[in-house]
């Protein structure tokens, strides 16, 4: 029982990390209608920035995370402006290949700047909360618990932003119908750039959490696998939907940890992806996705 509970809590906390990444994926997909394959690599850059500010410059964490966010936002807007904006009218496949090119670029640039050797990060330790359950005892890491809180706050904030503010409304309008939104006087390019900025800021937070809380070793390809997992989560929850990304992320995290703990560590990726496939075959637009209407 205690083992199950511990795995569940670890799963929720890992899931909340996936959820933050998935939110970035999902928003960009919803508004720009593109699979941003380079999102995982923006996370990696965020991780390196945190590493440099914390370990090399000896600054506090309160400074490292905003620094990572800032760099990621700048990076996201630059990528969008240079690589994706010229392809606004192009086919989705062309945009996908460009995103892959950007992903290659970031990985190899990181390798040139920071080297290919993985860097180990001293995990920020905020202590543990001991929990006793009958005879069993286990610890909950405060850092991991915080990451759950952070992701919930981010989700609520984003829901408020897209639902209530003028900028958020223009984002929804662009995602609904780009042409009509433009006719209503919405600056589509600026709205899409804003979406990339928000998504990249989230990637910065995720990068900080990935290396700081989960102690993932840092290398130029660090972002790829969490990126793919989070993308799976976004699709699982229904891509384009903010609560969907959150639920999808947490479910994928919980499934991954539970499978790893109780079935087989080696099979956890395979079974996580298998759950995704079953989910999509049963409900092709994901958990909270809107059904696609087809007009003839």
């Amino acid at each position: 029982m205690a083992q199950f509970l511990e795995a569940l809590i670890n799963g929720i906390s890992l899931g909340s990390l996936y959820a933050i990444i998935a939110l970035g994926y999902s928003m960009v997909y919803g508004i720009a209608k593109m699979l941003n394959f380079a999102h995982g690599d923006v996370i990696m850059v965020g991780g390196y920035i945190v590493f440099i500010v914390l370990n090399n410059m000896g600054m506090p964490a309160a400074l490292a995370i905003p620094a990572a966010m800032l760099v990621c936002v700048a990076l996201g807007i630059t990528i969008e402006g240079l690589a994706y904006r010229p392809l606004r009218q192009a086919t989705s496949l062309a945009v996908l290949i460009t995103a892959i090119g950007v992903s290659y670029f970031l990985q190899n640039a990181a390798q040139l700047i920071w080297g290919a050797n993985p860097r180990f990060f001293t995990i920020m330790n905020y202590g543990n909360i001991p929990v006793s359950l009958g005879k069993d005892q286990f610890n909950i890491s405060v850092g991991k618990l915080c990451s759950v809180g952070v992701s919930v706050v981010i989700m609520l904030g984003l829901s408020f932003f897209t639902g209530k503010t003028k900028m958020g409304k223009s984002m929804r309008a662009v995602s609904e119908d780009r042409g009509a939104a433009e006719l209503m006087g919405i600056n589509v390019n600026r709205t899409i750039a804003l979406t990339f900025a928000i998504g990249s800021a989230l990637a910065g937070v995720a990068g900080a959490m990935l290396v700081g809380v989960y102690g993932v070793q840092l290398s130029p390809t660090t972002g790829a696998m969490p990126g793919i997992k989070a993308f799976t989560a976004a699709v699982f929850g229904g891509i384009g939907s903010i609560p969907g990304a959150m639920i999808g992320g947490i479910l994928i995290g919980v499934i991954e940890i539970l499978v790893g703990t109780f079935i087989s560590t080696d099979l956890k990726d395979a079974l996580t992806f298998a759950v995704l496939i079953i989910m999509l075959v049963v409900k092709p637009t994901g958990l909270l996705g809107k059904p696609i209407r087809e007009k003839v």
Partner: peptide, 14 residues
């Protein structure tokens, strides 16, 4: 290679 890929996509699709 990465820059080449991005440039080819932009030049052929813009």
């Amino acid at each position: 290679y990465a820059v080449f890929l991005i440039l080819v996509m932009i030049l052929t699709n813009n």
